[in-house]
Design a protein around this nucleic acid. Sequence first.
DNA 1: CCCCAAATGAGAATGACTTTCATTTTTAAC
DNA 2: GTTAAAAATGAAAGTCATTCTCATTTGGGG
Lengths: 172, 172
Amino acid sequence: METIHLNENHTPLNDNSHLKEIIRDLGLKITQQRLAILNHVVTGKAHFTAQAAFESLSKTHPEIGFATVYRFLRKLSENGYVTEVRMGGLPARYEWAHKKHHDHLTCTKCQGIVEFENQEIEELQEKIADQFGFVLTDHVLELFGLCPKCQTKEGELPVPKNRFSSHLEPNN
Amino acid sequence: METIHLNENHTPLNDNSHLKEIIRDLGLKITQQRLAILNHVVTGKAHFTAQAAFESLSKTHPEIGFATVYRFLRKLSENGYVTEVRMGGLPARYEWAHKKHHDHLTCTKCQGIVEFENQEIEELQEKIADQFGFVLTDHVLELFGLCPKCQTKEGELPVPKNRFSSHLEPNN
DNA sequence: CCCCAAATGAGAATGACTTTCATTTTTAAC
DNA sequence: GTTAAAAATGAAAGTCATTCTCATTTGGGG
Ligand SMILES: [Mn+2]
Ligand SMILES: [Mn+2]
Ligand SMILES: [Zn+2]
Ligand SMILES: [Zn+2]
């Protein structure tokens, strides 16, 4: 029994059916927490940390615990629904894996991220794995540099040398 | 005043001059700890963790502190003398950066590492950065898969799904 | 409705670093 | 060689992301 009703702001409630579908597919029970988290993952901005998600969710769902956020994000990434990206020793960042595969080009100064896709590189990776008799299952490709803006503006890197910090939201 | 003498085992003492050279280049004072650590980095096996280096060094230099190991490894990697490789949330691993640039192909089952170099990919990366107006300064490329051995042997991954663990010494 | 396995969350635990700071070394200057 | 200031060290405490524990709550099949 799924009814659509309006909340106190008279905005239509999200149709959660596809979210429920995903949770069901994971073999998990459908809870308000998981729906809220998943909704945040799907509709919120990409490249968020678990901590950021927790804080954001806390506003509307003060009862949610960070353990639940961590747990569910892990489950989602284990099952390919979200992509976990890590750089250096920095907190993991997540993004809804609805788009086709892509890699990232990150500005080490402003943390801006450009997503790109390069079929040629993907193929070369397969070729390399083949050469060594490996069956390729995954890969990580992250490029770092200075974006056009940051090449002109003076100023030192906000991040210590050799301590990468990709995959953050841009500062500007 | 540098004299070569024999230690109690009548084996020639390492010629530390090139190690001292490196420490000097970093603008640091030459200490026994730094010489020991650097010697370990240069002559020991690659892809070691700070903890492993600390434990190994402790045997011959019981007085050395782990803070010093961490500190010096950080300094070395900041200055390009060692390469720091990280995967997933696992401890950082280091390798002496004497070889030319290479990337890694890691078996997710036995943790075996194959180093490879592919000029074509390197060039494509430059091209991509160019396309977006970035000045490329660094990159991370890690491939994951199953090595020839591990494709045949049965058994589940020793590492949780989606939690990479590249860049460890092989188990077998 | 009932029941119970699954889920939750508060807080403790973990683990990899990093920082602090009192003490020891290094080294440049006599 | 002495000496003194600056740098380095290491023991211990701190930090921080993430995981674990466990008492309590809850979803959903029967
Ligand atoms: Mn992305
Ligand atoms: Mn290597
Ligand atoms: Zn930038
Ligand atoms: Zn293997």
